[in-house]
Simulated assay, not measured.
Amino acid sequence: MQAQALLHLLQLTSPSLPIGAYSYSQGLEAAIENGTVKNEAGARAWIVDSLHEVVARFEAPILWRLLQAFSARDASAVAMWNERFIAARDTAEFRAETIQMGYSLSKLAIDLKIGDESLLDLMVTQGEVPLPTALAYSAVALNVPHDAALLGMLFAWAENQVLVCVKSVPLGQVAGQRLLLSLQPELDAAARTAQELADDELSNWSPGLSLLSMQHEVQYSRLYRS
């Protein structure tokens, strides 16, 4: 990868990117509250299962398709995958999370004037914009290779999940970094899965996670917004 593309990728996936990713746990806080995740081993098992059973089979493949659609300036494909992703958010928190972060990232990208006129037209014609759509737009506009953008998205997701565990289980900082290192082959495998799945193989079927998200909505004391 060229240095400029790498630097753009690092900026897009940085924890300091002002889109509010740090404020979401994606159901993990509820799992910690009910004792499903209570130590480093449990945290790793949670993240690996969520990665392979949910993210790699739905969110990442849709990002992959959106990257291709934006590159081809395929308006119908962008609209279809944008709508399908939003429709698949099956709790109020999950939907609010992706719309809020997608809005923040797309507004940031537009304010920074990245992307040519044809890309910008594709973005502004969407109604609500979830995070994968905004991330795909930004990556294509900044000439980040598709495979790198996909891995960056997966790492950013995993890093946020680890940070939730560091703060809420709690785990120590060394344990958190050990956990991130151990996830590298899992992230690579998830990226390959996301690129290989056919359209009719995509699935976000995860009723246990959906129930935890709904429980989080009424959790008595919480740090995160999902």
Rank of each mutant, 00 (worst) to 15 (best):
L151G: 02
P145G: 11
L180F: 03
A194S: 10
A148T: 02
V174I: 05
A190H: 08
V169L: 14
P185K: 14
P145E: 08
L180M: 14
T193C: 10
Q173W: 01
L181A: 15
A156S: 15
S182V: 05
S210L: 13
L209I: 04
Q177C: 01
G208V: 05
L183W: 12
Q195D: 05
S168I: 10
V162P: 06
N160Q: 10
S206D: 12
L180Y: 06
L171I: 09
P207G: 10
V169Y: 12
A191M: 09
L154I: 15
R192E: 04
G176Q: 00
F155E: 14
S210G: 11
K167I: 01
L202P: 05
A194Q: 04
E196T: 15
D188L: 03
V166R: 06
L181G: 04
D147P: 01
Q161W: 03
V166C: 08
C165G: 07
P207D: 11
G152D: 06
E201S: 10
W157Q: 06
H146A: 15
K167W: 07
E201Y: 03
G172P: 04
L154Y: 03
Q173T: 06
A149C: 13
A158F: 07
W157K: 08
L209R: 06
P185D: 13
N160D: 01
A148H: 03
P145M: 13
L187E: 02
T193P: 04
L187M: 15
Q161V: 06
A148L: 13
H146T: 11
V162T: 08
L181Y: 11
Q161E: 13
A191N: 06
Q184Y: 12
Q161A: 09
A175W: 05
V166I: 14
S206H: 12
A148G: 00
V144Q: 06
A175D: 14
S206V: 09
G208C: 02
L187D: 03
A149K: 08
V144P: 02
K167F: 03
A189C: 04
S182I: 04
K167E: 15
L171S: 03
D188A: 09
N204I: 07
S203F: 11
G152L: 08
L181P: 00
D200F: 12
A156E: 13
L150Q: 00
V174F: 05
A148P: 02
L187K: 10
